[in-house]
């Protein structure tokens, strides 16, 4: 494959106006995730309403007017301790329920449970979460940027381009490689941007400890995985747009695939089909969720996700390049 041609296609890919919109959308998502994490960055304790009975005095932290404030850690530690008799009620505290027993028919009393919260931005813990959140949007951004690349060509300059490079299959495959590299580079750029924001946020309003070589290795692997998902998604968007000559068809198809995924996944006969929808494996890859207890049907390993998505992308690229070679330009 000609490097000169690849270089040209990459320039063409990155020079489009949609790229500005796409990058802005990506930056906005990354920024949104960081702003959310930054807004939650605090060490103040949470107070949760509760109804209690028979909580020993040692757990009392202080009074808020007539309402006792108990230490959450202390109450949690009681677990099955001081309560006797039948458990009547469960009160949820921050996602964790604990039993409040009826002790000899004693009356339930309102109280506040205080739990120490450390939600400070801690890059070594929160960056992997940020990457996980931006993973799936990166897949869609990749599809959008790839599908708009060739669909725009068909209405405009493809005939002129073919007067300079008439080897159509080569032209299509070079465009495919360009959108894959382009998607991976954009994902990398946004991951670096996310890292920069996380570091600045952690340094100013959080904690920056724990960033050792091992951690960097793991985050590089995370980034590489999302880049891979975006890179595999790109030729899918390109192929569908080439076949339909419509960007919106490709984007709509992959968005619609999520709905189909939900419908098929809800049926016993549909689950094996859902497993092989490319968006299933691509999203599993992007968000790093594999195994039977995830939302991604039948995708149990990263290698499995990679294989399913890659085989579909390869098959669709081969089919589309053959069609592109024979297509008449009118």
């Amino acid at each position: 494959m000609s490097m000169r041609l690849l270089n040209t296609e990459l320039r063409r890919y990155f020079s489009r106006r949609v790229m500005v919109g796409g990058l802005l959308a990506g930056l906005f998502i990354v920024l949104g995730v960081n702003i959310f994490q930054l807004a939650r960055s605090s060490t103040s304790p949470d107070l949760n309403d509760a109804l209690t009975v028979g909580v020993p005095q040692k757990c009392l932290v202080r009074m808020s007017g007539p309402t006792p404030i108990y230490s959450g850690a202390c109450v949690d530690g009681l677990a099955n301790g001081p309560f006797e008799g039948q458990v009547e009620e469960h009160i949820d505290h921050g996602g964790r329920s604990f039993g409040v027993g009826v002790n000899n028919g004693a009356e339930l009393k309102p109280a506040l449970i205080e739990r120490a919260q450390d939600r400070r931005l801690h890059i070594s813990a929160t960056f992997s979460k940020a990457l996980k959140i931006i993973g799936a949007p990166m897949v869609f951004l990749s599809i959008l940027l790839a599908s708009s690349f060739l669909a725009a060509d068909f209405g405009t300059s493809i005939g002129t381009q073919l007067m300079f490079e008439p080897r159509r299959r080569l032209t299509y495959l070079t465009k495919t490689l360009a959108v894959m590299i382009g998607a991976a580079l954009i994902t990398l750029a946004l991951a670096v941007f996310a890292f920069a924001l996380q570091y600045i946020g952690s340094a100013t309003r959080g904690i920056t400890t724990g960033m050792d070589g091992h951690w960097f290795g793991l985050r590089l692997a995370d980034t590489g995985r999302i880049m891979l998902a975006a890179a595999i998604a790109a030729p899918l968007g390109l192929a569908v747009a080439a076949l339909t000559k419509r960007t919106v068809a490709a984007v709509g198809m992959f968005f619609g695939m999520y709905i189909v995924l939900g419908v098929l996944g809800g049926t016993s006969w549909g689950r094996p089909i859902a497993k092989y929808l490319p968006i299933n494996s691509l999203t599993a890859l992007a968000v790093n969720e594999f195994g039977p207890n995830t939302n991604w049907f039948g995708i149990r390993t990263m290698l499995g996700a990679l294989m399913v998505a890659s085989i579909i992308a390869l098959a669709l690229t081969a089919l589309t390049s053959a069609w592109f070679e024979r297509r008449e330009m009118r």
Partner: peptide, 18 residues
């Protein structure tokens, strides 16, 4: 036929580069 949002020079430049 050329990319509508590229300048005339950019369109030619890409073709020349290819």
């Amino acid at each position: 036929l050329f990319f509508p949002n590229f300048s005339g020079r950019k369109n030619l430049s890409l073709l020349a580069r290819s």
